[in-house]
Design a protein around this nucleic acid. Structure first.
Lengths: 261, 261
DNA sequence: CAAATAGTGTCTCTAAGACAATATACA
DNA sequence: TGTATATTGTCTTAGAGACACTATTTG
Protein backbone atom coordinates (compact mmCIF):
# COMPACT_ATOMS: atom_id res chain seq x y z
CA UNK A 1 0.00 0.00 0.00
CA UNK A 2 1.28 3.44 -0.91
CA UNK A 3 2.04 5.68 1.99
CA UNK A 4 0.15 8.96 1.77
CA UNK A 5 0.41 12.52 3.10
CA UNK A 6 -1.64 11.67 6.14
CA UNK A 7 0.68 8.81 7.05
CA UNK A 8 3.78 11.00 7.02
CA UNK A 9 2.16 13.87 8.83
CA UNK A 10 0.65 11.92 11.69
CA UNK A 11 2.01 8.37 11.86
CA UNK A 12 5.65 8.55 10.78
CA UNK A 13 8.55 9.77 12.89
CA UNK A 14 9.54 13.40 12.53
CA UNK A 15 12.76 12.42 10.71
CA UNK A 16 10.79 10.23 8.30
CA UNK A 17 8.29 13.08 7.78
CA UNK A 18 11.02 15.59 6.98
CA UNK A 19 12.70 13.21 4.53
CA UNK A 20 9.36 12.73 2.75
CA UNK A 21 8.65 16.48 2.87
CA UNK A 22 11.77 17.29 0.86
CA UNK A 23 10.72 14.89 -1.91
CA UNK A 24 7.45 16.72 -2.47
CA UNK A 25 6.96 19.54 -4.96
CA UNK A 26 5.85 22.69 -3.16
CA UNK A 27 6.59 24.98 -6.08
CA UNK A 28 2.93 25.67 -6.75
CA UNK A 29 2.54 27.50 -3.45
CA UNK A 30 2.69 31.25 -3.88
CA UNK A 31 5.49 32.94 -2.03
CA UNK A 32 6.47 36.56 -1.65
CA UNK A 33 9.91 37.92 -2.34
CA UNK A 34 11.47 39.25 0.88
CA UNK A 35 13.42 42.47 1.17
CA UNK A 36 14.71 44.58 4.02
CA UNK A 37 14.55 48.36 4.24
CA UNK A 38 16.74 50.20 6.67
CA UNK A 39 16.31 53.70 8.05
CA UNK A 40 19.90 54.59 8.95
CA UNK A 41 20.38 57.43 11.42
CA UNK A 42 23.70 59.19 11.94
CA UNK A 43 24.89 62.21 13.92
CA UNK A 44 27.14 64.45 11.87
CA UNK A 45 29.71 65.97 14.26
CA UNK A 46 30.68 68.64 11.70
CA UNK A 47 27.36 70.47 12.00
CA UNK A 48 25.96 68.63 15.04
CA UNK A 49 22.83 67.46 13.22
CA UNK A 50 20.88 64.23 13.19
CA UNK A 51 20.73 62.85 9.65
CA UNK A 52 19.35 59.89 7.72
CA UNK A 53 20.77 58.07 4.73
CA UNK A 54 18.70 58.06 1.53
CA UNK A 55 19.36 56.61 -1.89
CA UNK A 56 18.31 58.16 -5.18
CA UNK A 57 16.76 55.55 -7.43
CA UNK A 58 18.31 55.43 -10.90
CA UNK A 59 16.00 52.73 -12.22
CA UNK A 60 12.34 51.78 -12.28
CA UNK A 61 10.20 51.48 -10.32
CA UNK A 62 10.14 54.89 -8.60
CA UNK A 63 12.98 56.12 -10.80
CA UNK A 64 14.24 59.49 -9.57
CA UNK A 65 12.66 59.12 -6.15
CA UNK A 66 14.54 58.75 -2.90
CA UNK A 67 14.37 55.55 -0.89
CA UNK A 68 15.68 53.85 2.20
CA UNK A 69 18.71 51.59 2.01
CA UNK A 70 17.45 48.10 1.23
CA UNK A 71 17.78 44.88 -0.67
CA UNK A 72 16.77 41.26 -0.98
CA UNK A 73 17.21 38.74 1.81
CA UNK A 74 19.27 35.65 1.01
CA UNK A 75 17.82 32.22 1.90
CA UNK A 76 20.65 31.60 4.37
CA UNK A 77 20.29 34.76 6.42
CA UNK A 78 17.77 36.36 8.75
CA UNK A 79 16.24 39.72 7.91
CA UNK A 80 18.49 41.34 10.47
CA UNK A 81 21.60 39.76 8.94
CA UNK A 82 20.52 41.14 5.57
CA UNK A 83 20.01 44.61 7.03
CA UNK A 84 23.44 44.44 8.68
CA UNK A 85 25.01 43.33 5.43
CA UNK A 86 23.40 46.14 3.46
CA UNK A 87 24.47 48.65 6.09
CA UNK A 88 28.10 47.57 5.80
CA UNK A 89 27.93 47.63 2.02
CA UNK A 90 26.57 51.15 2.04
CA UNK A 91 28.69 52.70 4.80
CA UNK A 92 31.61 50.39 5.50
CA UNK A 93 30.55 50.32 9.16
CA UNK A 94 30.11 46.89 10.69
CA UNK A 95 27.45 47.10 13.41
CA UNK A 96 28.12 44.65 16.24
CA UNK A 97 25.88 45.96 19.02
CA UNK A 98 22.32 44.61 18.81
CA UNK A 99 21.01 47.79 20.32
CA UNK A 100 22.16 49.77 17.31
CA UNK A 101 19.65 48.04 15.04
CA UNK A 102 15.98 47.49 15.72
CA UNK A 103 13.42 45.66 13.69
CA UNK A 104 10.49 48.01 13.14
CA UNK A 105 8.11 45.55 11.54
CA UNK A 106 6.94 43.81 8.40
CA UNK A 107 5.26 45.75 5.61
CA UNK A 108 3.17 43.26 3.70
CA UNK A 109 0.51 44.99 1.62
CA UNK A 110 0.52 42.81 -1.52
CA UNK A 111 0.32 45.95 -3.66
CA UNK A 112 3.16 47.81 -1.96
CA UNK A 113 5.46 46.97 -4.89
CA UNK A 114 4.07 47.50 -8.41
CA UNK A 115 6.12 44.62 -9.84
CA UNK A 116 5.09 41.63 -7.78
CA UNK A 117 4.44 40.32 -4.29
CA UNK A 118 7.37 41.74 -2.34
CA UNK A 119 7.26 42.22 1.41
CA UNK A 120 9.75 44.25 3.37
CA UNK A 121 11.05 43.92 6.90
CA UNK A 122 11.81 47.44 8.08
CA UNK A 123 14.74 48.21 10.36
CA UNK A 124 16.17 51.27 12.05
CA UNK A 125 19.92 51.61 12.49
CA UNK A 126 21.70 53.98 14.86
CA UNK A 127 25.00 54.23 13.04
CA UNK A 128 28.29 55.08 14.71
CA UNK A 129 30.80 56.28 13.74
CA UNK A 130 29.46 58.79 11.23
CA UNK A 131 30.97 58.16 7.82
CA UNK A 132 30.44 59.32 4.26
CA UNK A 133 28.41 56.75 2.32
CA UNK A 134 30.17 54.45 -0.11
CA UNK A 135 29.03 53.81 -3.66
CA UNK A 136 26.84 50.71 -3.61
CA UNK A 137 27.06 47.76 -6.00
CA UNK A 138 24.13 49.05 -7.94
CA UNK A 139 25.86 52.41 -8.46
CA UNK A 140 23.11 54.19 -6.57
CA UNK A 141 24.53 57.00 -4.56
CA UNK A 142 23.48 57.51 -0.99
CA UNK A 143 23.44 60.90 0.72
CA UNK A 144 22.97 62.11 4.27
CA UNK A 145 19.85 64.27 4.78
CA UNK A 146 19.31 66.48 7.81
CA UNK A 147 16.04 65.75 9.60
CA UNK A 148 13.77 68.78 9.86
CA UNK A 149 10.19 69.44 10.89
CA UNK A 150 7.83 71.72 8.97
CA UNK A 151 5.44 74.18 10.56
CA UNK A 152 2.74 71.50 10.31
CA UNK A 153 5.06 69.19 12.25
CA UNK A 154 5.70 67.02 9.24
CA UNK A 155 9.06 65.48 8.57
CA UNK A 156 11.29 66.70 5.76
CA UNK A 157 14.84 65.72 4.87
CA UNK A 158 17.27 68.37 3.73
CA UNK A 159 20.43 68.21 1.71
CA UNK A 160 22.31 71.28 0.36
CA UNK A 161 21.01 70.38 -3.09
CA UNK A 162 17.45 69.43 -2.35
CA UNK A 163 14.63 68.82 0.09
CA UNK A 164 12.80 65.50 0.29
CA UNK A 165 9.36 65.20 1.85
CA UNK A 166 7.73 61.99 3.01
CA UNK A 167 5.57 61.93 -0.11
CA UNK A 168 8.67 62.06 -2.29
CA UNK A 169 9.82 58.67 -1.00
CA UNK A 170 9.58 55.49 -3.06
CA UNK A 171 7.32 52.49 -2.33
CA UNK A 172 5.65 52.68 1.10
CA UNK A 173 8.73 54.20 2.66
CA UNK A 174 6.66 57.06 4.01
CA UNK A 175 4.82 54.57 6.21
CA UNK A 176 8.09 52.94 7.24
CA UNK A 177 9.60 56.27 8.25
CA UNK A 178 6.51 57.25 10.23
CA UNK A 179 6.40 53.88 11.99
CA UNK A 180 10.08 54.19 12.84
CA UNK A 181 9.77 57.67 14.34
CA UNK A 182 6.70 56.56 16.29
CA UNK A 183 8.51 53.54 17.68
CA UNK A 184 11.60 55.51 18.70
CA UNK A 185 9.43 58.14 20.38
CA UNK A 186 7.36 55.59 22.27
CA UNK A 187 10.46 53.70 23.40
CA UNK A 188 12.32 56.76 24.64
CA UNK A 189 11.65 56.08 28.31
CA UNK A 190 12.35 52.38 28.03
CA UNK A 191 15.53 52.63 26.00
CA UNK A 192 16.89 55.76 24.30
CA UNK A 193 18.91 53.71 21.83
CA UNK A 194 18.66 56.51 19.26
CA UNK A 195 21.45 58.18 21.27
CA UNK A 196 23.79 55.43 20.14
CA UNK A 197 24.38 57.55 17.03
CA UNK A 198 26.53 59.64 19.39
CA UNK A 199 28.84 56.77 20.31
CA UNK A 200 29.57 55.31 23.71
CA UNK A 201 30.08 58.64 25.43
CA UNK A 202 28.43 61.94 24.62
CA UNK A 203 27.52 65.37 25.95
CA UNK A 204 24.11 66.65 26.98
CA UNK A 205 23.78 69.27 24.23
CA UNK A 206 24.27 66.70 21.48
CA UNK A 207 21.83 64.35 23.21
CA UNK A 208 19.23 67.12 23.31
CA UNK A 209 19.70 67.87 19.59
CA UNK A 210 18.89 64.23 18.87
CA UNK A 211 16.02 63.81 21.32
CA UNK A 212 14.21 66.99 20.25
CA UNK A 213 13.34 65.25 16.99
CA UNK A 214 11.27 62.68 18.85
CA UNK A 215 9.67 64.50 21.76
CA UNK A 216 8.94 68.20 22.04
CA UNK A 217 9.36 68.07 25.81
CA UNK A 218 13.13 68.16 25.27
CA UNK A 219 12.85 71.60 23.66
CA UNK A 220 12.18 73.15 27.04
CA UNK A 221 14.88 71.27 28.94
CA UNK A 222 17.95 73.09 30.17
CA UNK A 223 20.98 70.82 29.97
CA UNK A 224 21.03 70.79 33.76
CA UNK A 225 17.46 69.59 34.11
CA UNK A 226 18.10 67.10 31.33
CA UNK A 227 20.85 65.37 33.27
CA UNK A 228 18.86 65.55 36.50
CA UNK A 229 15.53 64.25 35.21
CA UNK A 230 16.52 62.06 32.29
CA UNK A 231 20.02 60.72 32.75
CA UNK A 232 20.10 60.31 36.54
CA UNK A 233 18.05 57.25 37.53
CA UNK A 234 17.89 56.20 33.89
CA UNK A 235 18.64 52.46 33.86
CA UNK A 236 20.37 52.82 30.47
CA UNK A 237 22.25 56.12 30.78
CA UNK A 238 24.62 57.53 33.39
CA UNK A 239 26.82 60.48 34.26
CA UNK A 240 30.52 59.55 34.16
CA UNK A 241 31.48 62.41 36.47
CA UNK A 242 34.13 63.41 33.95
CA UNK A 243 34.30 66.57 31.86
CA UNK A 244 35.25 67.11 28.26
CA UNK A 245 38.90 68.06 27.68
CA UNK A 246 40.23 70.53 25.10
CA UNK A 247 37.01 72.20 24.01
CA UNK A 248 37.28 74.25 20.84
CA UNK A 249 34.51 76.60 21.89
CA UNK A 250 34.06 78.95 24.83
CA UNK A 251 31.90 77.90 27.73
CA UNK A 252 31.94 75.85 30.83
CA UNK A 253 33.36 72.31 30.51
CA UNK A 254 30.76 69.76 29.40
CA UNK A 255 29.80 66.70 31.42
CA UNK A 256 30.59 63.40 29.76
CA UNK A 257 27.59 61.06 29.79
CA UNK A 258 27.47 57.49 28.59
CA UNK A 259 25.50 54.29 28.20
CA UNK A 260 25.81 52.01 31.21
CA UNK A 261 27.04 49.20 28.98
CA UNK B 1 18.64 46.27 -31.74
CA UNK B 2 17.20 44.20 -28.93
CA UNK B 3 16.11 46.19 -25.92
CA UNK B 4 17.87 44.99 -22.80
CA UNK B 5 17.34 45.06 -19.03
CA UNK B 6 19.18 48.32 -18.68
CA UNK B 7 16.94 50.01 -21.24
CA UNK B 8 13.74 49.07 -19.41
CA UNK B 9 15.07 49.91 -15.99
CA UNK B 10 16.46 53.33 -16.78
CA UNK B 11 15.27 54.60 -20.18
CA UNK B 12 11.73 53.32 -20.62
CA UNK B 13 8.61 54.73 -18.99
CA UNK B 14 7.46 53.13 -15.77
CA UNK B 15 4.46 51.55 -17.54
CA UNK B 16 6.73 50.12 -20.23
CA UNK B 17 9.11 48.84 -17.56
CA UNK B 18 6.33 47.08 -15.65
CA UNK B 19 4.97 45.47 -18.81
CA UNK B 20 8.45 44.13 -19.60
CA UNK B 21 8.96 43.05 -16.00
CA UNK B 22 5.97 40.71 -16.10
CA UNK B 23 7.35 38.95 -19.18
CA UNK B 24 10.55 38.00 -17.41
CA UNK B 25 11.11 34.76 -15.55
CA UNK B 26 11.90 35.47 -11.89
CA UNK B 27 11.28 31.94 -10.74
CA UNK B 28 14.92 31.25 -10.02
CA UNK B 29 14.97 33.77 -7.19
CA UNK B 30 14.66 32.14 -3.81
CA UNK B 31 11.64 33.14 -1.84
CA UNK B 32 10.44 32.26 1.64
CA UNK B 33 7.00 30.97 2.44
CA UNK B 34 5.14 33.47 4.63
CA UNK B 35 2.98 32.58 7.59
CA UNK B 36 1.37 34.50 10.42
CA UNK B 37 1.29 33.46 14.06
CA UNK B 38 -1.18 35.02 16.40
CA UNK B 39 -1.06 35.20 20.20
CA UNK B 40 -4.75 35.57 21.03
CA UNK B 41 -5.57 36.93 24.49
CA UNK B 42 -9.01 36.66 26.06
CA UNK B 43 -10.54 37.48 29.44
CA UNK B 44 -12.76 34.70 30.71
CA UNK B 45 -15.59 36.30 32.71
CA UNK B 46 -16.52 32.98 34.32
CA UNK B 47 -13.34 32.82 36.39
CA UNK B 48 -12.08 36.35 35.75
CA UNK B 49 -8.75 35.20 34.33
CA UNK B 50 -6.62 36.34 31.41
CA UNK B 51 -6.11 33.46 28.98
CA UNK B 52 -4.42 32.68 25.68
CA UNK B 53 -5.49 30.40 22.88
CA UNK B 54 -3.18 27.49 22.00
CA UNK B 55 -3.51 24.71 19.46
CA UNK B 56 -2.32 21.16 19.93
CA UNK B 57 -0.45 19.98 16.84
CA UNK B 58 -1.73 16.67 15.49
CA UNK B 59 0.80 16.45 12.67
CA UNK B 60 4.51 16.87 12.04
CA UNK B 61 6.52 18.95 12.56
CA UNK B 62 6.26 19.44 16.33
CA UNK B 63 3.53 16.82 16.55
CA UNK B 64 1.98 16.80 20.02
CA UNK B 65 3.33 20.21 20.93
CA UNK B 66 1.25 23.31 21.51
CA UNK B 67 1.45 26.26 19.18
CA UNK B 68 0.00 29.67 18.48
CA UNK B 69 -2.87 30.07 16.05
CA UNK B 70 -1.36 30.56 12.60
CA UNK B 71 -1.35 29.80 8.92
CA UNK B 72 -0.11 30.77 5.49
CA UNK B 73 -0.63 34.20 4.00
CA UNK B 74 -2.44 34.36 0.66
CA UNK B 75 -0.90 36.42 -2.18
CA UNK B 76 -3.88 38.77 -2.16
CA UNK B 77 -3.84 39.70 1.50
CA UNK B 78 -1.59 41.49 3.95
CA UNK B 79 -0.19 39.67 6.98
CA UNK B 80 -2.72 41.44 9.16
CA UNK B 81 -5.61 40.34 6.94
CA UNK B 82 -4.35 36.77 7.22
CA UNK B 83 -4.15 37.03 11.00
CA UNK B 84 -7.68 38.45 11.11
CA UNK B 85 -8.95 35.67 8.87
CA UNK B 86 -7.33 32.98 11.03
CA UNK B 87 -8.75 34.58 14.16
CA UNK B 88 -12.27 34.47 12.76
CA UNK B 89 -11.83 30.87 11.60
CA UNK B 90 -10.67 29.82 15.04
CA UNK B 91 -13.07 31.80 17.23
CA UNK B 92 -15.89 33.07 15.06
CA UNK B 93 -15.12 36.59 16.24
CA UNK B 94 -14.59 39.19 13.54
CA UNK B 95 -12.17 41.82 14.85
CA UNK B 96 -12.92 45.25 13.39
CA UNK B 97 -10.97 47.57 15.70
CA UNK B 98 -7.35 47.99 14.63
CA UNK B 99 -6.33 48.45 18.22
CA UNK B 100 -7.38 44.90 19.02
CA UNK B 101 -4.59 43.47 16.87
CA UNK B 102 -0.95 44.48 16.86
CA UNK B 103 1.85 43.31 14.67
CA UNK B 104 4.67 42.19 16.94
CA UNK B 105 7.30 41.61 14.30
CA UNK B 106 8.82 39.30 11.73
CA UNK B 107 10.59 36.11 12.77
CA UNK B 108 12.95 35.26 9.96
CA UNK B 109 15.67 32.87 11.14
CA UNK B 110 16.02 30.64 8.04
CA UNK B 111 16.21 27.58 10.31
CA UNK B 112 13.14 28.41 12.40
CA UNK B 113 11.13 25.81 10.48
CA UNK B 114 12.71 22.39 9.93
CA UNK B 115 10.96 21.89 6.59
CA UNK B 116 11.99 24.88 4.52
CA UNK B 117 12.46 28.63 4.49
CA UNK B 118 9.31 29.84 6.23
CA UNK B 119 9.11 33.21 7.91
CA UNK B 120 6.37 34.26 10.29
CA UNK B 121 4.83 37.63 11.01
CA UNK B 122 3.78 37.54 14.66
CA UNK B 123 0.64 39.26 15.89
CA UNK B 124 -1.08 39.79 19.21
CA UNK B 125 -4.87 39.89 19.39
CA UNK B 126 -6.97 41.24 22.24
CA UNK B 127 -10.12 39.25 21.63
CA UNK B 128 -13.57 40.37 22.70
CA UNK B 129 -16.06 38.93 23.32
CA UNK B 130 -14.70 35.82 24.98
CA UNK B 131 -15.89 32.72 23.15
CA UNK B 132 -15.17 29.02 23.13
CA UNK B 133 -12.84 28.15 20.23
CA UNK B 134 -14.27 26.52 17.13
CA UNK B 135 -12.80 23.48 15.46
CA UNK B 136 -10.48 24.73 12.73
CA UNK B 137 -10.39 23.42 9.15
CA UNK B 138 -7.41 21.30 9.94
CA UNK B 139 -9.29 19.65 12.83
CA UNK B 140 -6.78 20.91 15.33
CA UNK B 141 -8.44 21.74 18.57
CA UNK B 142 -7.73 25.03 20.27
CA UNK B 143 -8.00 25.53 24.03
CA UNK B 144 -7.89 28.52 26.36
CA UNK B 145 -4.96 28.44 28.81
CA UNK B 146 -4.77 30.61 31.92
CA UNK B 147 -1.61 32.71 32.07
CA UNK B 148 0.46 32.06 35.19
CA UNK B 149 3.91 33.01 36.43
CA UNK B 150 6.26 30.57 38.14
CA UNK B 151 8.38 31.39 41.18
CA UNK B 152 11.25 32.17 38.79
CA UNK B 153 8.92 34.66 37.06
CA UNK B 154 8.65 32.50 33.96
CA UNK B 155 5.45 32.19 32.03
CA UNK B 156 3.36 29.03 32.09
CA UNK B 157 -0.03 28.32 30.59
CA UNK B 158 -2.53 26.24 32.54
CA UNK B 159 -5.52 24.22 31.49
CA UNK B 160 -7.45 21.84 33.78
CA UNK B 161 -5.86 18.94 31.90
CA UNK B 162 -2.29 20.15 31.52
CA UNK B 163 0.34 22.81 31.98
CA UNK B 164 2.33 24.19 29.05
CA UNK B 165 5.67 25.93 29.56
CA UNK B 166 7.39 28.17 27.03
CA UNK B 167 9.78 25.37 26.14
CA UNK B 168 6.85 23.11 25.30
CA UNK B 169 5.82 25.37 22.44
CA UNK B 170 6.38 24.49 18.79
CA UNK B 171 8.74 26.28 16.38
CA UNK B 172 10.14 29.54 17.79
CA UNK B 173 6.87 30.36 19.50
CA UNK B 174 8.66 30.78 22.80
CA UNK B 175 10.48 33.79 21.31
CA UNK B 176 7.23 35.13 19.86
CA UNK B 177 5.46 34.89 23.21
CA UNK B 178 8.33 36.61 25.01
CA UNK B 179 8.51 39.39 22.42
CA UNK B 180 4.75 39.89 22.70
CA UNK B 181 4.75 40.17 26.48
CA UNK B 182 7.72 42.53 26.32
CA UNK B 183 5.99 44.75 23.80
CA UNK B 184 2.73 44.89 25.73
CA UNK B 185 4.60 45.73 28.93
CA UNK B 186 6.67 48.46 27.30
CA UNK B 187 3.61 49.99 25.64
CA UNK B 188 1.48 50.04 28.77
CA UNK B 189 1.91 53.76 29.38
CA UNK B 190 1.45 54.68 25.73
CA UNK B 191 -1.58 52.51 25.08
CA UNK B 192 -3.00 49.82 27.36
CA UNK B 193 -4.70 48.05 24.47
CA UNK B 194 -4.40 44.71 26.29
CA UNK B 195 -7.43 45.91 28.30
CA UNK B 196 -9.53 45.63 25.15
CA UNK B 197 -10.00 41.97 26.09
CA UNK B 198 -12.44 43.40 28.65
CA UNK B 199 -14.65 45.07 26.06
CA UNK B 200 -15.53 48.74 25.68
CA UNK B 201 -16.37 49.26 29.34
CA UNK B 202 -14.86 47.50 32.33
CA UNK B 203 -14.27 47.68 36.07
CA UNK B 204 -11.03 48.39 37.90
CA UNK B 205 -10.65 44.96 39.51
CA UNK B 206 -10.77 43.18 36.16
CA UNK B 207 -8.32 45.70 34.70
CA UNK B 208 -5.90 45.03 37.55
CA UNK B 209 -6.15 41.25 37.03
CA UNK B 210 -5.05 41.79 33.43
CA UNK B 211 -2.37 44.41 34.05
CA UNK B 212 -0.68 42.45 36.85
CA UNK B 213 0.54 39.99 34.23
CA UNK B 214 2.62 42.69 32.57
CA UNK B 215 3.88 44.93 35.37
CA UNK B 216 4.35 44.03 39.01
CA UNK B 217 3.65 47.61 40.05
CA UNK B 218 -0.05 46.86 39.67
CA UNK B 219 0.14 44.23 42.41
CA UNK B 220 0.46 46.96 45.04
CA UNK B 221 -2.27 49.21 43.66
CA UNK B 222 -5.55 49.63 45.49
CA UNK B 223 -8.38 50.04 43.01
CA UNK B 224 -8.74 53.64 44.18
CA UNK B 225 -5.14 54.53 43.48
CA UNK B 226 -5.40 52.67 40.19
CA UNK B 227 -8.18 54.93 38.95
CA UNK B 228 -6.46 58.04 40.31
CA UNK B 229 -2.97 57.40 38.97
CA UNK B 230 -3.61 55.31 35.89
CA UNK B 231 -7.05 56.01 34.47
CA UNK B 232 -7.38 59.71 35.28
CA UNK B 233 -5.21 61.75 32.91
CA UNK B 234 -4.73 58.66 30.77
CA UNK B 235 -5.25 59.82 27.17
CA UNK B 236 -6.73 56.43 26.28
CA UNK B 237 -8.83 55.53 29.34
CA UNK B 238 -11.48 57.41 31.30
CA UNK B 239 -13.94 57.16 34.16
CA UNK B 240 -17.55 57.16 32.92
CA UNK B 241 -18.88 58.39 36.29
CA UNK B 242 -21.36 55.52 36.19
CA UNK B 243 -21.56 52.52 38.49
CA UNK B 244 -22.25 48.88 37.78
CA UNK B 245 -25.90 47.84 38.20
CA UNK B 246 -27.18 44.54 39.58
CA UNK B 247 -23.99 43.15 41.09
CA UNK B 248 -24.16 39.48 42.06
CA UNK B 249 -21.65 39.91 44.86
CA UNK B 250 -21.59 41.99 48.02
CA UNK B 251 -19.57 45.15 48.12
CA UNK B 252 -19.69 48.75 47.14
CA UNK B 253 -20.84 49.45 43.54
CA UNK B 254 -18.02 49.35 41.02
CA UNK B 255 -17.05 52.31 38.87
CA UNK B 256 -17.49 51.75 35.15
CA UNK B 257 -14.36 52.70 33.22
CA UNK B 258 -13.93 52.74 29.49
CA UNK B 259 -11.75 53.53 26.52
CA UNK B 260 -12.15 57.09 25.32
CA UNK B 261 -13.05 55.83 21.85
C1' DC C 1 37.39 91.48 30.89
C1' DA C 2 33.35 90.48 28.07
C1' DA C 3 30.85 86.96 25.72
C1' DA C 4 29.52 82.33 25.27
C1' DT C 5 28.13 78.21 27.17
C1' DA C 6 26.72 74.82 30.23
C1' DG C 7 26.72 73.04 35.02
C1' DT C 8 24.78 73.91 39.92
C1' DG C 9 21.55 75.31 43.28
C1' DT C 10 16.92 76.55 44.80
C1' DC C 11 12.13 76.80 44.81
C1' DT C 12 7.42 75.51 43.63
C1' DC C 13 4.00 72.41 42.62
C1' DT C 14 2.09 68.22 41.04
C1' DA C 15 1.21 63.63 41.42
C1' DA C 16 2.30 58.90 43.03
C1' DG C 17 1.34 55.84 46.52
C1' DA C 18 0.26 54.41 51.37
C1' DC C 19 -3.37 54.07 54.33
C1' DA C 20 -7.53 55.25 56.85
C1' DA C 21 -12.35 56.16 56.56
C1' DT C 22 -16.70 55.55 54.23
C1' DA C 23 -20.39 53.74 51.22
C1' DT C 24 -23.16 49.96 49.33
C1' DA C 25 -24.87 45.27 48.85
C1' DC C 26 -25.64 40.59 50.40
C1' DA C 27 -27.09 37.27 53.84
C1' DT D 1 -26.17 43.82 61.72
C1' DG D 2 -21.92 41.83 60.25
C1' DT D 3 -19.06 40.83 56.29
C1' DA D 4 -17.31 41.64 51.83
C1' DT D 5 -15.78 44.79 48.57
C1' DA D 6 -14.64 48.90 46.36
C1' DT D 7 -14.62 53.98 46.49
C1' DT D 8 -13.37 58.33 48.62
C1' DG D 9 -10.49 61.17 51.22
C1' DT D 10 -6.07 62.47 53.52
C1' DC D 11 -1.34 62.78 54.12
C1' DT D 12 3.49 62.33 52.99
C1' DT D 13 7.06 62.56 49.95
C1' DA D 14 9.73 62.35 45.67
C1' DG D 15 10.72 64.36 41.61
C1' DA D 16 9.73 67.23 37.42
C1' DG D 17 10.59 71.53 35.69
C1' DA D 18 11.29 76.69 35.90
C1' DC D 19 14.69 79.85 36.73
C1' DA D 20 18.45 82.27 38.80
C1' DC D 21 23.22 81.88 39.72
C1' DT D 22 27.93 80.35 39.06
C1' DA D 23 31.97 78.32 36.85
C1' DT D 24 35.04 77.79 32.92
C1' DT D 25 36.87 78.82 28.36
C1' DT D 26 37.74 81.75 24.23
C1' DG D 27 39.26 85.94 22.20
Amino acid sequence: MKKDKRYYETKASEAEYLAWYKTQDWGSYDKPAMTVDNLIFGFDPSDEQLKILLIERKAHPFKGKFALVGGFVEPTESAKAAALRETTEETGVRITDNRQMWQIGAFTDPKRDPRQWIISIAHATFLYPFVSPQAGDDALQAKWFTITHTAENELAFKHPDETVTLDDLAFDHKAIVLATFKRIKESLDVTPDILRVLGETFISTDALVVLKHFDTKFEDYSTGNFVKTYVKNNPILMDTGLFEQNPQKPGRPKKILRFRS
